[in-house]
Write a protein that binds this DNA or RNA. Structure first.
Lengths: 220, 220
DNA sequence: CATAGTTCCGAACTATGTCAGGCAAAGACG
DNA sequence: CGTCTTTGCCTGACATAGTTCGGAACTATG
Protein backbone atom coordinates (compact mmCIF):
# COMPACT_ATOMS: atom_id res chain seq x y z
CA UNK A 1 0.00 0.00 0.00
CA UNK A 2 2.74 2.41 -0.72
CA UNK A 3 1.99 5.61 -2.52
CA UNK A 4 2.01 4.78 -6.15
CA UNK A 5 3.20 7.09 -8.78
CA UNK A 6 0.96 9.03 -11.08
CA UNK A 7 3.00 8.03 -14.08
CA UNK A 8 2.62 4.34 -14.72
CA UNK A 9 2.44 5.28 -18.35
CA UNK A 10 4.31 2.29 -19.70
CA UNK A 11 2.30 -0.37 -18.04
CA UNK A 12 -0.94 1.41 -18.38
CA UNK A 13 -0.46 2.05 -22.06
CA UNK A 14 0.26 -1.61 -22.66
CA UNK A 15 -2.77 -2.52 -20.67
CA UNK A 16 -4.96 -0.16 -22.63
CA UNK A 17 -3.63 -1.50 -25.89
CA UNK A 18 -4.35 -5.05 -24.84
CA UNK A 19 -7.85 -4.12 -23.75
CA UNK A 20 -8.45 -2.41 -27.06
CA UNK A 21 -7.25 -5.51 -28.85
CA UNK A 22 -9.65 -7.62 -26.88
CA UNK A 23 -12.52 -5.33 -27.76
CA UNK A 24 -11.61 -5.48 -31.41
CA UNK A 25 -11.54 -9.25 -31.29
CA UNK A 26 -14.86 -9.19 -29.50
CA UNK A 27 -16.44 -7.17 -32.30
CA UNK A 28 -15.10 -9.60 -34.84
CA UNK A 29 -16.46 -12.58 -33.01
CA UNK A 30 -19.77 -10.97 -32.36
CA UNK A 31 -20.19 -10.18 -36.03
CA UNK A 32 -19.47 -13.78 -36.89
CA UNK A 33 -21.39 -15.53 -34.13
CA UNK A 34 -24.06 -13.08 -33.17
CA UNK A 35 -24.25 -10.87 -30.16
CA UNK A 36 -25.04 -13.65 -27.73
CA UNK A 37 -22.64 -16.05 -29.39
CA UNK A 38 -19.65 -14.46 -27.78
CA UNK A 39 -17.79 -16.84 -25.49
CA UNK A 40 -14.91 -16.01 -23.24
CA UNK A 41 -12.91 -18.94 -24.50
CA UNK A 42 -13.28 -17.94 -28.11
CA UNK A 43 -12.49 -14.37 -27.25
CA UNK A 44 -9.41 -15.37 -25.33
CA UNK A 45 -8.29 -17.59 -28.14
CA UNK A 46 -8.73 -14.79 -30.65
CA UNK A 47 -6.85 -12.41 -28.38
CA UNK A 48 -3.95 -14.74 -27.92
CA UNK A 49 -4.64 -15.80 -24.39
CA UNK A 50 -6.81 -18.06 -22.29
CA UNK A 51 -10.30 -17.14 -21.27
CA UNK A 52 -9.38 -16.63 -17.65
CA UNK A 53 -6.71 -14.12 -18.52
CA UNK A 54 -9.35 -11.81 -19.91
CA UNK A 55 -10.40 -11.20 -16.37
CA UNK A 56 -7.34 -9.11 -15.70
CA UNK A 57 -8.70 -6.66 -18.26
CA UNK A 58 -12.43 -6.89 -17.73
CA UNK A 59 -14.08 -7.99 -14.53
CA UNK A 60 -16.76 -9.94 -16.35
CA UNK A 61 -18.28 -10.69 -19.70
CA UNK A 62 -20.92 -8.07 -19.09
CA UNK A 63 -18.15 -5.53 -18.64
CA UNK A 64 -16.96 -6.38 -22.13
CA UNK A 65 -20.44 -5.82 -23.50
CA UNK A 66 -20.50 -2.61 -21.56
CA UNK A 67 -17.27 -1.38 -23.10
CA UNK A 68 -18.57 -2.33 -26.52
CA UNK A 69 -21.74 -0.43 -25.77
CA UNK A 70 -19.88 2.75 -24.93
CA UNK A 71 -17.56 2.32 -27.87
CA UNK A 72 -20.50 1.79 -30.16
CA UNK A 73 -22.11 5.01 -29.04
CA UNK A 74 -18.88 6.88 -29.58
CA UNK A 75 -18.76 5.49 -33.10
CA UNK A 76 -22.33 6.57 -33.49
CA UNK A 77 -21.51 10.12 -32.48
CA UNK A 78 -18.58 10.21 -34.86
CA UNK A 79 -20.61 8.77 -37.68
CA UNK A 80 -23.51 11.15 -37.27
CA UNK A 81 -21.32 14.19 -36.77
CA UNK A 82 -19.59 13.57 -40.03
CA UNK A 83 -22.37 14.49 -42.39
CA UNK A 84 -23.59 17.60 -40.66
CA UNK A 85 -20.38 19.60 -40.55
CA UNK A 86 -20.70 21.79 -43.55
CA UNK A 87 -24.33 22.33 -44.35
CA UNK A 88 -25.08 23.20 -40.78
CA UNK A 89 -25.15 26.98 -40.53
CA UNK A 90 -28.84 27.45 -40.94
CA UNK A 91 -31.84 25.89 -42.57
CA UNK A 92 -30.93 26.41 -46.15
CA UNK A 93 -31.96 23.12 -47.65
CA UNK A 94 -33.61 21.47 -44.70
CA UNK A 95 -35.09 18.62 -46.63
CA UNK A 96 -31.82 17.67 -48.25
CA UNK A 97 -30.11 17.86 -44.93
CA UNK A 98 -32.80 15.80 -43.29
CA UNK A 99 -32.58 13.18 -45.97
CA UNK A 100 -28.86 12.97 -45.60
CA UNK A 101 -29.14 12.70 -41.88
CA UNK A 102 -31.74 9.97 -42.06
CA UNK A 103 -29.75 7.98 -44.55
CA UNK A 104 -26.72 8.25 -42.35
CA UNK A 105 -28.63 6.96 -39.38
CA UNK A 106 -30.15 4.02 -41.16
CA UNK A 107 -26.86 3.26 -42.80
CA UNK A 108 -25.20 3.19 -39.42
CA UNK A 109 -27.73 0.72 -38.11
CA UNK A 110 -27.81 -1.54 -41.12
CA UNK A 111 -24.07 -1.59 -41.68
CA UNK A 112 -23.56 -3.44 -38.43
CA UNK A 113 -26.65 -5.24 -37.25
CA UNK A 114 -25.00 -6.60 -34.18
CA UNK A 115 -23.99 -3.16 -33.06
CA UNK A 116 -27.51 -1.95 -33.71
CA UNK A 117 -28.83 -4.71 -31.55
CA UNK A 118 -26.44 -3.89 -28.76
CA UNK A 119 -27.00 -0.15 -28.83
CA UNK A 120 -30.64 0.27 -29.66
CA UNK A 121 -32.43 -2.89 -28.69
CA UNK A 122 -32.04 -4.25 -25.22
CA UNK A 123 -31.52 -7.83 -25.99
CA UNK A 124 -28.74 -9.35 -23.92
CA UNK A 125 -30.06 -11.39 -21.02
CA UNK A 126 -28.83 -9.67 -17.91
CA UNK A 127 -27.00 -6.81 -19.49
CA UNK A 128 -27.66 -3.25 -18.63
CA UNK A 129 -25.15 -0.54 -19.43
CA UNK A 130 -23.21 0.84 -16.51
CA UNK A 131 -23.97 4.41 -15.48
CA UNK A 132 -20.78 5.55 -17.16
CA UNK A 133 -21.62 3.95 -20.47
CA UNK A 134 -25.20 5.05 -20.18
CA UNK A 135 -24.00 8.59 -19.76
CA UNK A 136 -22.10 8.30 -23.00
CA UNK A 137 -25.25 7.15 -24.71
CA UNK A 138 -27.30 10.00 -23.30
CA UNK A 139 -24.68 12.45 -24.38
CA UNK A 140 -24.60 11.19 -27.92
CA UNK A 141 -28.34 11.09 -28.16
CA UNK A 142 -28.49 14.69 -27.10
CA UNK A 143 -26.09 15.58 -29.84
CA UNK A 144 -28.33 13.85 -32.33
CA UNK A 145 -31.32 15.65 -30.91
CA UNK A 146 -29.52 18.90 -31.54
CA UNK A 147 -28.92 17.85 -35.11
CA UNK A 148 -32.59 17.13 -35.52
CA UNK A 149 -33.38 20.55 -34.14
CA UNK A 150 -31.19 22.11 -36.82
CA UNK A 151 -33.13 20.22 -39.40
CA UNK A 152 -36.30 21.59 -37.98
CA UNK A 153 -37.42 18.70 -35.84
CA UNK A 154 -38.11 20.18 -32.47
CA UNK A 155 -40.05 19.18 -29.45
CA UNK A 156 -39.94 15.90 -27.59
CA UNK A 157 -42.83 14.37 -29.47
CA UNK A 158 -41.44 15.12 -32.88
CA UNK A 159 -38.03 13.89 -31.95
CA UNK A 160 -39.46 10.70 -30.54
CA UNK A 161 -41.50 10.19 -33.66
CA UNK A 162 -38.45 10.72 -35.80
CA UNK A 163 -36.32 8.23 -33.92
CA UNK A 164 -39.14 5.72 -33.82
CA UNK A 165 -39.64 5.84 -37.57
CA UNK A 166 -35.95 5.58 -38.35
CA UNK A 167 -35.41 2.84 -35.84
CA UNK A 168 -38.41 1.03 -37.24
CA UNK A 169 -37.05 1.18 -40.75
CA UNK A 170 -33.66 -0.03 -39.62
CA UNK A 171 -35.03 -2.77 -37.44
CA UNK A 172 -37.34 -4.09 -40.12
CA UNK A 173 -34.55 -3.98 -42.63
CA UNK A 174 -32.26 -5.92 -40.36
CA UNK A 175 -34.78 -8.43 -39.13
CA UNK A 176 -36.62 -9.17 -42.33
CA UNK A 177 -34.48 -8.26 -45.28
CA UNK A 178 -30.88 -8.27 -44.20
CA UNK A 179 -28.66 -7.37 -47.11
CA UNK A 180 -31.49 -6.01 -49.20
CA UNK A 181 -33.04 -2.59 -49.18
CA UNK A 182 -36.74 -3.23 -48.92
CA UNK A 183 -37.05 -0.79 -46.04
CA UNK A 184 -33.91 1.21 -46.54
CA UNK A 185 -35.28 2.56 -49.80
CA UNK A 186 -38.20 4.05 -47.92
CA UNK A 187 -36.01 6.52 -46.09
CA UNK A 188 -36.66 9.38 -48.49
CA UNK A 189 -40.37 8.86 -48.31
CA UNK A 190 -40.20 8.63 -44.58
CA UNK A 191 -38.39 11.92 -44.34
CA UNK A 192 -40.99 13.64 -46.47
CA UNK A 193 -43.69 12.12 -44.41
CA UNK A 194 -42.09 13.22 -41.17
CA UNK A 195 -41.36 16.72 -42.38
CA UNK A 196 -44.89 17.16 -43.60
CA UNK A 197 -46.19 15.97 -40.30
CA UNK A 198 -43.77 18.12 -38.35
CA UNK A 199 -44.90 21.16 -40.22
CA UNK A 200 -48.54 20.43 -39.82
CA UNK A 201 -48.59 19.60 -36.16
CA UNK A 202 -48.45 22.42 -33.64
CA UNK A 203 -45.68 22.56 -31.14
CA UNK A 204 -45.91 19.22 -29.46
CA UNK A 205 -44.88 18.70 -25.89
CA UNK A 206 -45.84 21.52 -23.56
CA UNK A 207 -42.17 22.12 -23.08
CA UNK A 208 -42.11 21.78 -19.34
CA UNK A 209 -44.55 18.91 -19.49
CA UNK A 210 -43.63 15.55 -18.05
CA UNK A 211 -40.51 14.73 -19.87
CA UNK A 212 -38.87 12.73 -17.19
CA UNK A 213 -39.97 9.42 -18.54
CA UNK A 214 -36.43 8.36 -19.33
CA UNK A 215 -35.88 7.12 -15.86
CA UNK A 216 -38.04 4.06 -15.63
CA UNK A 217 -36.00 0.96 -15.83
CA UNK A 218 -35.95 -2.09 -13.74
CA UNK A 219 -36.99 -5.55 -14.65
CA UNK A 220 -35.27 -8.45 -13.15
CA UNK B 1 -42.65 -39.89 -35.47
CA UNK B 2 -46.32 -39.09 -35.51
CA UNK B 3 -48.34 -38.68 -38.59
CA UNK B 4 -49.46 -42.22 -39.18
CA UNK B 5 -52.88 -43.18 -37.99
CA UNK B 6 -55.62 -40.72 -37.36
CA UNK B 7 -56.77 -42.35 -34.13
CA UNK B 8 -54.03 -42.54 -31.56
CA UNK B 9 -56.45 -40.72 -29.30
CA UNK B 10 -55.43 -41.47 -25.75
CA UNK B 11 -51.71 -41.27 -25.90
CA UNK B 12 -51.55 -38.47 -28.32
CA UNK B 13 -54.03 -36.38 -26.44
CA UNK B 14 -52.03 -36.76 -23.28
CA UNK B 15 -48.92 -35.92 -25.18
CA UNK B 16 -50.44 -32.80 -26.63
CA UNK B 17 -51.71 -31.71 -23.25
CA UNK B 18 -48.30 -32.18 -21.72
CA UNK B 19 -46.64 -30.28 -24.52
CA UNK B 20 -49.10 -27.45 -24.11
CA UNK B 21 -48.36 -27.35 -20.41
CA UNK B 22 -44.67 -27.17 -21.11
CA UNK B 23 -45.19 -24.29 -23.47
CA UNK B 24 -47.27 -22.47 -20.95
CA UNK B 25 -44.57 -22.91 -18.33
CA UNK B 26 -42.02 -21.75 -20.87
CA UNK B 27 -43.92 -18.50 -21.41
CA UNK B 28 -44.09 -17.94 -17.70
CA UNK B 29 -40.40 -18.49 -17.24
CA UNK B 30 -39.49 -16.40 -20.21
CA UNK B 31 -41.53 -13.51 -18.91
CA UNK B 32 -39.76 -13.76 -15.60
CA UNK B 33 -36.23 -14.42 -16.75
CA UNK B 34 -36.09 -12.96 -20.19
CA UNK B 35 -36.15 -14.70 -23.51
CA UNK B 36 -32.64 -16.05 -23.25
CA UNK B 37 -32.98 -16.85 -19.58
CA UNK B 38 -34.98 -19.97 -20.24
CA UNK B 39 -33.25 -23.11 -19.01
CA UNK B 40 -34.29 -26.65 -19.57
CA UNK B 41 -33.84 -27.50 -15.91
CA UNK B 42 -36.06 -24.66 -14.77
CA UNK B 43 -38.59 -25.49 -17.40
CA UNK B 44 -38.62 -29.12 -16.42
CA UNK B 45 -38.97 -28.19 -12.80
CA UNK B 46 -41.89 -25.89 -13.56
CA UNK B 47 -43.51 -28.58 -15.67
CA UNK B 48 -43.21 -31.22 -13.00
CA UNK B 49 -40.47 -33.24 -14.55
CA UNK B 50 -36.74 -33.31 -15.07
CA UNK B 51 -35.03 -31.48 -17.83
CA UNK B 52 -34.25 -34.65 -19.73
CA UNK B 53 -37.86 -35.60 -19.89
CA UNK B 54 -38.65 -32.54 -21.92
CA UNK B 55 -36.84 -34.19 -24.75
CA UNK B 56 -39.63 -36.65 -25.27
CA UNK B 57 -41.84 -33.70 -26.18
CA UNK B 58 -39.44 -31.40 -27.94
CA UNK B 59 -36.28 -32.51 -29.65
CA UNK B 60 -34.34 -29.49 -28.46
CA UNK B 61 -34.58 -26.16 -26.76
CA UNK B 62 -34.76 -24.46 -30.12
CA UNK B 63 -37.81 -26.55 -30.92
CA UNK B 64 -39.46 -25.07 -27.86
CA UNK B 65 -38.66 -21.58 -29.04
CA UNK B 66 -40.01 -22.61 -32.40
CA UNK B 67 -43.29 -23.76 -30.95
CA UNK B 68 -43.53 -20.56 -28.97
CA UNK B 69 -42.86 -18.62 -32.13
CA UNK B 70 -45.71 -20.27 -33.99
CA UNK B 71 -48.00 -19.96 -31.02
CA UNK B 72 -47.13 -16.31 -30.67
CA UNK B 73 -48.07 -15.65 -34.25
CA UNK B 74 -51.34 -17.44 -33.80
CA UNK B 75 -52.03 -15.24 -30.81
CA UNK B 76 -51.13 -12.30 -32.95
CA UNK B 77 -53.62 -13.30 -35.61
CA UNK B 78 -56.32 -13.76 -33.03
CA UNK B 79 -55.52 -10.47 -31.34
CA UNK B 80 -55.54 -8.47 -34.54
CA UNK B 81 -58.63 -10.14 -35.92
CA UNK B 82 -60.59 -9.23 -32.88
CA UNK B 83 -60.91 -5.53 -33.41
CA UNK B 84 -61.70 -5.55 -37.07
CA UNK B 85 -64.73 -7.79 -37.07
CA UNK B 86 -67.55 -5.35 -36.91
CA UNK B 87 -66.47 -2.14 -38.53
CA UNK B 88 -65.12 -3.99 -41.48
CA UNK B 89 -67.80 -3.83 -44.15
CA UNK B 90 -66.43 -0.91 -46.02
CA UNK B 91 -64.49 2.23 -45.40
CA UNK B 92 -66.92 4.01 -43.25
CA UNK B 93 -64.59 5.64 -40.79
CA UNK B 94 -61.22 4.69 -42.09
CA UNK B 95 -59.25 6.85 -39.76
CA UNK B 96 -60.98 5.54 -36.68
CA UNK B 97 -60.47 2.03 -37.89
CA UNK B 98 -56.84 2.70 -38.63
CA UNK B 99 -56.28 4.18 -35.22
CA UNK B 100 -57.88 1.23 -33.58
CA UNK B 101 -55.83 -1.15 -35.63
CA UNK B 102 -52.60 0.63 -34.82
CA UNK B 103 -53.35 0.73 -31.14
CA UNK B 104 -54.12 -2.91 -31.16
CA UNK B 105 -50.84 -3.68 -32.80
CA UNK B 106 -48.74 -1.59 -30.46
CA UNK B 107 -50.66 -2.90 -27.51
CA UNK B 108 -49.92 -6.43 -28.61
CA UNK B 109 -46.22 -5.70 -28.78
CA UNK B 110 -45.94 -3.75 -25.57
CA UNK B 111 -48.13 -6.04 -23.53
CA UNK B 112 -45.59 -8.83 -23.81
CA UNK B 113 -42.12 -7.57 -24.62
CA UNK B 114 -40.61 -10.99 -24.63
CA UNK B 115 -43.08 -12.20 -27.19
CA UNK B 116 -42.40 -9.13 -29.26
CA UNK B 117 -38.73 -9.90 -29.14
CA UNK B 118 -39.29 -13.48 -30.18
CA UNK B 119 -41.71 -12.73 -32.98
CA UNK B 120 -40.46 -9.52 -34.49
CA UNK B 121 -36.82 -9.18 -33.63
CA UNK B 122 -34.44 -11.95 -34.47
CA UNK B 123 -32.52 -12.10 -31.31
CA UNK B 124 -31.94 -15.62 -30.08
CA UNK B 125 -28.45 -16.90 -30.82
CA UNK B 126 -28.89 -19.77 -33.21
CA UNK B 127 -32.62 -19.74 -33.49
CA UNK B 128 -34.40 -19.53 -36.78
CA UNK B 129 -38.01 -20.55 -37.12
CA UNK B 130 -38.68 -23.82 -38.83
CA UNK B 131 -40.34 -23.71 -42.25
CA UNK B 132 -43.60 -24.77 -40.66
CA UNK B 133 -43.57 -22.03 -38.08
CA UNK B 134 -42.36 -19.54 -40.58
CA UNK B 135 -45.31 -20.41 -42.76
CA UNK B 136 -47.61 -19.57 -39.89
CA UNK B 137 -45.93 -16.21 -39.58
CA UNK B 138 -46.24 -15.48 -43.27
CA UNK B 139 -49.86 -16.44 -43.16
CA UNK B 140 -50.66 -14.16 -40.30
CA UNK B 141 -48.76 -11.29 -41.80
CA UNK B 142 -50.78 -11.66 -44.94
CA UNK B 143 -53.93 -11.42 -42.94
CA UNK B 144 -52.67 -8.24 -41.38
CA UNK B 145 -51.77 -6.91 -44.78
CA UNK B 146 -55.32 -7.53 -45.84
CA UNK B 147 -56.53 -5.59 -42.84
CA UNK B 148 -54.32 -2.72 -43.79
CA UNK B 149 -55.74 -2.82 -47.27
CA UNK B 150 -59.22 -2.45 -45.85
CA UNK B 151 -58.07 0.58 -43.99
CA UNK B 152 -56.77 2.01 -47.19
CA UNK B 153 -53.12 1.12 -46.92
CA UNK B 154 -52.27 -0.61 -50.16
CA UNK B 155 -49.15 -1.37 -52.04
CA UNK B 156 -45.98 -2.96 -50.78
CA UNK B 157 -44.26 0.29 -50.00
CA UNK B 158 -47.09 1.70 -47.98
CA UNK B 159 -47.52 -1.50 -46.08
CA UNK B 160 -43.82 -1.67 -45.32
CA UNK B 161 -43.86 1.90 -44.16
CA UNK B 162 -46.79 1.21 -41.93
CA UNK B 163 -45.23 -1.81 -40.29
CA UNK B 164 -41.93 -0.02 -39.90
CA UNK B 165 -43.49 2.91 -38.11
CA UNK B 166 -45.57 0.77 -35.80
CA UNK B 167 -42.71 -1.57 -35.06
CA UNK B 168 -40.50 1.42 -34.42
CA UNK B 169 -42.93 2.87 -31.92
CA UNK B 170 -43.29 -0.45 -30.16
CA UNK B 171 -39.61 -1.18 -30.13
CA UNK B 172 -38.69 2.23 -28.77
CA UNK B 173 -41.38 1.96 -26.18
CA UNK B 174 -40.13 -1.40 -25.06
CA UNK B 175 -36.44 -0.64 -25.16
CA UNK B 176 -36.42 2.83 -23.70
CA UNK B 177 -39.53 3.39 -21.68
CA UNK B 178 -40.91 0.08 -20.60
CA UNK B 179 -44.03 0.55 -18.59
CA UNK B 180 -44.49 4.13 -19.68
CA UNK B 181 -46.16 5.51 -22.76
CA UNK B 182 -43.66 7.94 -24.18
CA UNK B 183 -43.92 6.37 -27.61
CA UNK B 184 -47.23 4.62 -27.26
CA UNK B 185 -49.00 7.94 -26.99
CA UNK B 186 -47.71 8.86 -30.44
CA UNK B 187 -49.77 6.21 -32.14
CA UNK B 188 -52.61 8.55 -33.09
CA UNK B 189 -50.23 11.08 -34.54
CA UNK B 190 -48.42 8.35 -36.40
CA UNK B 191 -51.63 7.14 -37.96
CA UNK B 192 -52.53 10.61 -39.16
CA UNK B 193 -49.06 11.02 -40.52
CA UNK B 194 -49.20 7.71 -42.33
CA UNK B 195 -52.66 8.28 -43.72
CA UNK B 196 -51.70 11.69 -44.99
CA UNK B 197 -48.66 10.25 -46.60
CA UNK B 198 -50.55 7.34 -48.05
CA UNK B 199 -52.99 9.66 -49.66
CA UNK B 200 -50.37 11.93 -51.06
CA UNK B 201 -48.03 9.37 -52.55
CA UNK B 202 -48.91 7.73 -55.86
CA UNK B 203 -49.46 4.01 -56.00
CA UNK B 204 -46.17 2.58 -54.99
CA UNK B 205 -45.22 -1.04 -55.52
CA UNK B 206 -46.96 -3.20 -58.05
CA UNK B 207 -49.72 -5.28 -56.56
CA UNK B 208 -52.77 -5.84 -58.66
CA UNK B 209 -54.65 -3.04 -56.99
CA UNK B 210 -57.81 -3.05 -58.99
CA UNK B 211 -59.33 0.20 -57.99
CA UNK B 212 -56.50 2.55 -57.51
CA UNK B 213 -55.94 3.74 -54.03
CA UNK B 214 -56.32 7.42 -54.33
CA UNK B 215 -55.58 10.34 -56.47
CA UNK B 216 -52.06 11.52 -56.43
CA UNK B 217 -51.83 15.11 -55.57
CA UNK B 218 -48.41 15.57 -56.95
CA UNK B 219 -45.22 15.87 -55.04
CA UNK B 220 -42.06 14.08 -55.70
C1' DC C 1 -50.36 -61.53 -15.84
C1' DA C 2 -47.61 -60.61 -20.26
C1' DT C 3 -46.10 -57.80 -23.64
C1' DA C 4 -45.18 -53.70 -26.18
C1' DG C 5 -44.90 -48.99 -26.14
C1' DT C 6 -44.42 -44.56 -23.65
C1' DT C 7 -42.66 -41.63 -20.07
C1' DC C 8 -39.39 -40.54 -16.93
C1' DC C 9 -34.99 -40.44 -14.35
C1' DG C 10 -29.92 -40.85 -12.90
C1' DA C 11 -25.43 -40.52 -14.66
C1' DA C 12 -22.49 -38.53 -17.70
C1' DC C 13 -20.42 -35.67 -21.58
C1' DT C 14 -19.43 -31.24 -23.38
C1' DA C 15 -19.34 -26.27 -23.16
C1' DT C 16 -19.90 -22.08 -20.62
C1' DG C 17 -18.64 -18.02 -17.02
C1' DT C 18 -15.81 -17.43 -13.25
C1' DC C 19 -12.61 -18.00 -9.03
C1' DA C 20 -8.11 -19.37 -6.77
C1' DG C 21 -3.46 -20.16 -6.97
C1' DG C 22 0.97 -20.42 -9.22
C1' DC C 23 4.93 -19.23 -12.02
C1' DA C 24 7.81 -16.64 -14.96
C1' DA C 25 8.98 -12.34 -17.19
C1' DA C 26 9.32 -7.24 -16.56
C1' DG C 27 10.24 -3.30 -13.92
C1' DA C 28 12.21 -0.84 -9.72
C1' DC C 29 16.16 -0.38 -6.74
C1' DG C 30 20.40 -1.52 -4.14
C1' DC D 1 24.66 -7.31 -11.50
C1' DG D 2 21.28 -9.36 -7.97
C1' DT D 3 17.26 -8.76 -5.46
C1' DC D 4 12.06 -7.72 -4.63
C1' DT D 5 7.72 -6.38 -6.24
C1' DT D 6 4.55 -6.06 -9.78
C1' DT D 7 2.38 -7.69 -13.93
C1' DG D 8 0.69 -11.08 -17.30
C1' DC D 9 -0.56 -15.16 -18.30
C1' DC D 10 -1.67 -20.13 -17.29
C1' DT D 11 -3.45 -24.53 -15.00
C1' DG D 12 -7.03 -26.43 -12.17
C1' DA D 13 -11.43 -26.45 -10.54
C1' DC D 14 -16.45 -25.39 -9.66
C1' DA D 15 -21.23 -24.52 -10.97
C1' DT D 16 -24.43 -24.44 -14.42
C1' DA D 17 -25.88 -24.91 -19.29
C1' DG D 18 -27.86 -28.31 -23.26
C1' DT D 19 -27.97 -32.81 -24.46
C1' DT D 20 -27.34 -38.17 -24.83
C1' DC D 21 -27.65 -42.89 -23.07
C1' DG D 22 -29.40 -46.80 -20.80
C1' DG D 23 -32.53 -48.46 -17.87
C1' DA D 24 -36.52 -48.23 -14.59
C1' DA D 25 -41.35 -47.21 -14.05
C1' DC D 26 -45.51 -46.56 -15.90
C1' DT D 27 -49.70 -47.26 -19.41
C1' DA D 28 -52.36 -49.69 -22.79
C1' DT D 29 -54.01 -53.72 -24.43
C1' DG D 30 -54.26 -58.81 -25.05
Amino acid sequence: MSGKDATPSRVEARRAAAAAGILEAAWELVREQGLAGLTMRDLGSRSGMKAQSLYSYFPSKHAIYDAMFAQGYREFAEWMAFGSEQASSDGRAPRAEAVRNAHRYVEFCVSDPVRFQLLFLRTIPGFEPSPASYAVAIDVLEQVTAQLAEIGVRGAKHVDMWTAVMTGLASQQIANDLGGNRWARLVDDAVDMLLAHTGRTPTPGRTSAGRSTTRSRSTR
